[in-house]
């Protein structure tokens, strides 16, 4: 009998989430920032799938309700792909305009 339960998965997810946040906060390269964002998204996705796998309510669910989490994760993956495409296009554009992708130097929003 396995000892692995829902909290294990949530722990993995939490660690990945924290790593992603750490990456976002500390990196200066825009591409690295995006990688951090992808990690955060994956962490959230693990949560979705995990909650879809384990019945936390204690009442039997229909198949389609059981699948809600997985469906959400699929849409997250899809939209993450969109996000990555657009974000990288923006990064390319920033690079063309400022000749750098260092986010510290692209702080025109401040003025």
């Amino acid at each position: 009998m396995t000892h692995i339960g829902l909290p294990h998965f949530l722990t993995i997810s939490a660690i990945l989430f924290a790593l992603g946040i750490f990456g976002i906060v500390t990196k200066r390269n825009a591409v690295m920032l995006l990688m951090g964002i992808e990690l955060v998204l994956n962490a959230a996705n693990i949560n979705f799938v995990a909650f879809s796998r384990y019945n936390v309510l204690g009442v039997p669910l229909s198949d389609s309700r059981m699948m809600v989490g997985q469906m959400a994760s699929i849409f997250v993956i899809v939209l993450a792909a969109c996000e990555a495409a657009v974000a990288l296009a923006i990064v390319l554009n920033i690079y063309k305009r400022f000749n750098t992708i260092n986010v510290d130097e692209v702080d025109n929003l401040r003025d």
Partner: peptide, 9 residues
């Protein structure tokens, strides 16, 4: 208000 995303995160 630094203008950097990371700060806001």
């Amino acid at each position: 208000q630094t203008g950097r995303i990371q700060t806001y995160v």
